[in-house]
């Protein structure tokens, strides 16, 4: 009697265990078939596919790991695709940016060659044609600069420089141009020495491009250059009193070939600021642009102090 009871209970327990294990097996089987389907899809190139799993599943670590691998692959692929697209866009807009001034240049030269204009007017035509040729040359040069940066082929010579001294020298070169263009200026650079680890040529290019940008696009007549320094970093602030940057353009101005001026009128080439950003980031710095409430825009570059 006692033994039959024991036997009865042990049978029930074994049946329960078998049912439980069977259910578990079915669940794992289903999971594996899910994983198989998803992997098939991923193999075909759908890197967006994820394998969903519950916290109680036996296969969860495998799923999490597969998902992570796929996600990493995908983000790399997207980066590649983005730069590919950027190059494509660069090429199309390039052909326009070159074609427009070139066509106009040809027009002027033809007029001169065909003797449609003579005397003083001819001289003027030659002047205009030359200016256009210079503009094209500038464009090609900044393009070259930019391509070198983008392809990471530029070799930098980093050294410890006195940021204040270097800035003063660059500004001294700019003053005649500013006066020539009737720009007022206000310069505030600390007298102390402040060491920053940078490439001199790159820093010159950064400031030149920023100033060029303000002269061409701000529409203002005043420029303020300030440097603030503390124990960890220096902030270089360039402010103008122009019309500011329209809100819809503000987040794009550092993109290559982005021109706030949709008409792509002949001044400027949309490369200057993207070169600036690239160079600043190579110096482990940051750049941002803001509009001032009373008009005008301000560019702030921060560079870390050399240790």
């Amino acid at each position: 009697m006692k033994w039959t009871l024991v036997f009865f209970f042990s049978t029930i327990i074994s049946i329960c265990v078998i049912v439980y294990l069977w259910a578990k097996l079915c669940r794992v089987k289903e999971q594996i078939s899910n994983i198989k389907d998803a992997l098939e899809d991923i193999k075909k190139g759908n890197l967006n596919r994820r394998i969903l799993t519950r916290k109680s599943d036996m296969t969860k670590t495998i799923c999490y790991n597969i998902n992570e691998i796929v996600m990493n692959n995908q983000s790399q692929l997207t980066k590649l695709k983005q730069s590919e697209q950027a190059y494509k866009r660069l090429m199309t807009s390039l052909s326009h940016d070159v074609k427009t001034p070139l066509t106009s240049l040809v027009g002027y030269l033809e007029a001169i060659q065909e003797k449609i204009v003579t005397g003083e007017e001819k001289e003027e035509y030659i002047g205009v044609a030359l200016a256009k040729a210079y503009h094209l040359k500038d464009f090609v040069e900044s393009l070259f600069e930019w391509v070198k940066l983008d392809a990471k082929e530029q070799i930098f010579q980093f050294e410890i420089c006195d940021l204040n001294e270097l800035s003063r020298n660059i500004l001294a070169d700019w003053i005649p141009t500013l006066e020539d263009k009737l720009f007022g200026y206000e310069i505030d650079i600390p007298d102390l020495e402040y060491s920053v680890y940078l490439d001199r040529n790159a820093y010159v290019l950064i400031l030149n491009n920023l100033f060029q940008n303000i002269l061409l696009h701000s529409g203002g007549d005043k420029i303020r250059f300030q440097i603030f320094e503390d124990k960890v970093q220096a902030a270089i602030i360039v402010t103008d009193n122009g019309k500011g940057i329209p809100k819809k353009h503000l987040s794009h101005i550092f993109e290559r070939l982005y021109q706030g001026d949709e008409s792509r009128s002949t001044s400027g080439n949309g490369l200057g600021l993207s070169i600036v950003q690239e160079l600043v980031s190579i110096h482990s710095g940051m750049i941002r642009a803001e509009n001032l409430s009373h008009g005008g825009a301000t560019f702030t570059i921060t560079l870390p102090k050399a240790l």
Binding site: L52, T53, R54, Y64, N67, E68
Partner: peptide
């Protein structure tokens, strides 16, 4: 998350 399953821990 429990009902649907998730892709990350």
């Amino acid at each position: 998350a429990k009902l649907r399953g998730t892709s990350r821990p």
